[in-house]
């Protein structure tokens, strides 16, 4: 158990044995089932150190070579924006979060429902799969103005754009996952006189989950990009709108801060999906991330 701890730690039902001995073990002594396993900090330390090192290097280069702010602001200047213009950043954060989250929900739900339909109806798959591929190939930046024209300037076009971006990876993965059932298993279900519904809920959905989560991880970051791209057109608020405002008015530190906030939102969404995946897919060996 102790030896495998690092691999199995996320879902281990029992607290870590105190015998682990090292500092990670001590830190883990009181942890519950969802706490990070021992060794987490040791594993993450290189990433944190690398990030801190890069930030320091960035600061040194910018101040050492006297790089003008409009080309590259220093990390300190960017941090100042978070402190001094935090209200503006948050004002623009919430609309984007709302659009990204709604787009994520809508896009993935539609994709999952379609995937189930495709698996049950070859006709539907033949008819609509190519159209889904076609829709996916349309550059979002070209379709965005048309969506704004059709749906107005509210949240709707942004949510649709975020949903469109989420839709395709989930559809492809979900179809693949629903079909990734061994013929023997289907044979067995048939022998047991299982209904189509039972096959779907007891076999196919289970087998599709790892595929679904892989897609959701992609979607969790791209939905934020979708919302931001949607906001480039016709918004007064939202991170996308703030990016345009900052870019064209040469407010470089604000631009950097906005981009960092957007990236933070995407990373947070990714982390949430990863945590949910670990809870749901208990049988699946955890991944490196």
């Amino acid at each position: 158990m102790t030896g495998r701890h690092e691999e199995a730690g996320w879902t281990a039902p029992a607290p870590a044995p105190a015998a682990a001995g090292n500092e990670a073990g001590c830190a883990a002594a009181g942890r519950g089932r969802n706490d990070p396993p021992p060794g987490t900090w040791r594993r993450r330390a290189p990433a944190i150190a690398a990030a801190a090192g890069l930030l320091a290097l960035w600061q040194v280069i910018v101040s050492g070579f006297g790089v003008p702010t409009y080309i590259a602001p220093s990390p300190v200047q960017v941090l100042q924006v978070f402190v001094e213009q935090g209200d503006i950043l948050w004002l623009n954060f919430w609309p984007t979060l709302m659009e990204a989250a709604s787009g994520f929900l809508v896009g993935n739900t539609v994709a999952a429902v379609l995937a189930v339909w495709f698996v049950h109806s070859q006709l539907a798959e033949r008819a609509f799969y190519p159209i889904a591929v076609f829709v996916n190939t349309i550059p979002i930046i070209a379709v965005a103005p048309i969506l704004v024209l059709l749906l107005g300037n509210g949240y709707a076009p942004k949510i649709v754009i975020a949903a469109l971006i989420c839709f395709f990876p989930t559809l492809v993965n979900m179809v693949r996952g629903l079909k990734a059932v061994s013929p023997q298993m289907l044979e067995l279900m048939r022998v047991l006189s299982a209904s189509g519904r039972e096959v779907l809920f007891k076999i196919r959905l289970q087998s599709s989950l790892p595929f679904l989560f892989a897609a959701l991880k992609i979607a969790s970051t791209t939905c934020v990009i979708g919302a931001i791209v949607g906001e480039w057109i016709g918004s007064n608020y939202g991170l996308g709108s703030l990016i345009i405002e900052a870019t064209y008015n040469f407010r470089a530190p604000l631009l950097y801060a906005t981009v960092i906030l957007g990236a933070g939102m995407a990373v947070a969404a990714f982390t949430i999906v990863t945590l949910v995946e670990r809870r749901v897919l208990k049988w699946k060996p955890p991944e490196v991330f």
């Binding site: 024209l149 016709g234 709108s241």
Partner: peptide, 18 residues
């Protein structure tokens, strides 16, 4: 007031009557 943006000059929106 409805804002435009990069690549969107709004003419289509006015022409469409929006």
């Amino acid at each position: 007031v409805t804002p435009g943006g990069p690549g969107v000059d709004g003419v289509a929106s006015v022409a469409a009557g929006r």
